[in-house]
């Protein structure tokens, strides 16, 4: 425990030093780059929470991409039709929960192969959103940026952390809460027990199926929130294939973060940073290399750095296995 904490701390320290160095050279650009990075990172981290919630109780969820796509779509079109982004947000959380419930029914009750169940959700999402998609719709407004008084005046951190929209703050709150809930509460202990060794939980009077249902559904709701965040706060529009693989990136970040919400957040932050710096490189045109290479750069860097720093990872032991009571 201690050992990997210090390793992660070292890694964070390294990033901090690098950022500090750039900041001393050019404060305003560095601040805006890191601020962009944070906006890139948060939806990814939030999407990783969907995976963490599910996998910690033993359900593999590769349908995150589909959940994000569907809920971003619903958020946008419901907002557009009702001219109310709050209704859009509610609808997207509802559809996310529904998809979570669908995954729970398929994988917990029907004991379907969970990879197939997730794939069904992804295919469903692509199909539905392209079929129902109409061009040229708009929404009345995006969620406005809300700068937190006082805190926004802190140099550097003010702009990075406290000058965002409401869903950003709420998302960050969800991530931190999930961390606390997973490791400090009875719900967390029971959920992890269910994901590691379900029969132990069962014999301790913890209902494996119920907890899996609840957690996978809540995870879906978080996925819905993420979808809204993307279409109603960050971008303000929707087109076909809108989420562009974020759901799969989130799964990788979950693994790099060792199924730990803070770990996934750190991994997402690193990925966001590389992306923001890559964008900056393109804007500045300091180096003359094809833009395609620059766009690949964040992925390659992230893989290398995280693979080195993550060390040995171990997934929850009961992941992907339906619980067969009498065979336990």
């Amino acid at each position: 425990m201690k050992r990997h904490l210090t390793k992660r701390n070292l890694f964070i320290l390294l990033i901090a030093i690098a950022t500090g160095y750039f900041y001393s050279k050019d404060g305003s650009i560095t601040t805006s780059v890191v601020s962009t990075a944070t906006s890139f990172a948060l939806p990814l981290a939030l999407a990783a929470m969907v995976g963490i919630m599910c996998e910690r109780t033993g359900i593999v969820n590769i349908g995150i991409e589909g959940t994000l796509l569907t809920s971003a779509f619903v958020a946008f079109f419901v907002s557009s039709m009702t001219h109310n982004i709050l209704i859009g947000l509610t609808a997207s959380v509802a559809i996310g929960s529904l998809l979570g419930l669908l995954l729970a029914v398929m994988s917990v009750s029907w004991k379907m192969d969970q990879i197939i169940a997730g794939t069904i959700i992804n295919i469903l999402a692509t199909g539905l959103t392209s079929f129902l998609y109409v061009q040229g719709r708009t929404i009345p407004a995006t969620f406005p940026e809300y700068d937190i008084p006082k805190l926004m005046d802190i140099p550097f951190f003010g702009q990075v952390l406290f000058m965002h929209g409401p869903l950003f703050y709420f998302g960050l709150f969800v991530i931190l809460s999930l961390y606390v809930a997973l490791f400090k509460t009875t719900w967390g202990l029971r959920s992890r027990a269910v994901g590691e060794h379900p029969s132990s939980a069962d014999t301790a009077g913890v209902s494996v199926l119920r907890l899996r249902y609840i957690n996978v559904t809540i995870a879906g709701a978080i996925g819905g929130l993420t979808g809204s965040f993307l279409s109603l706060e960050l971008v303000g529009s929707f087109e076909r294939g809108f989420t562009a693989g974020k759901g799969f990136t989130a799964l990788a970040l979950m693994i790099f973060g060792r199924w730990n919400p803070l770990g996934a957040l750190a991994a997402a932050m690193f990925f966001g940073m590389t992306q923001a710096y890559a964008n900056q490189l393109m804007i500045d045109q300091v180096v003359q290399i094809p833009t395609q290479f620059i766009t690949i750069l964040p992925y390659i860097l992230t893989i290398i750095v995280l693979a080195i720093s993550a060390g040995k990872v171990r997934a929850p032991a009961a992941e992907g296995q339906p619980y067969e009571k009498e065979n336990a």
Binding site: A181, K184, T185, T186, W187, L189, R190, A193, S200, A201, A204, G205, V206
Partner: peptide, 11 residues
């Protein structure tokens, strides 16, 4: 596990 001593929601 299953009957944890708690303070509010926390173990």
């Amino acid at each position: 596990l299953g009957d944890e001593p708690r303070k509010a929601f926390f173990i």
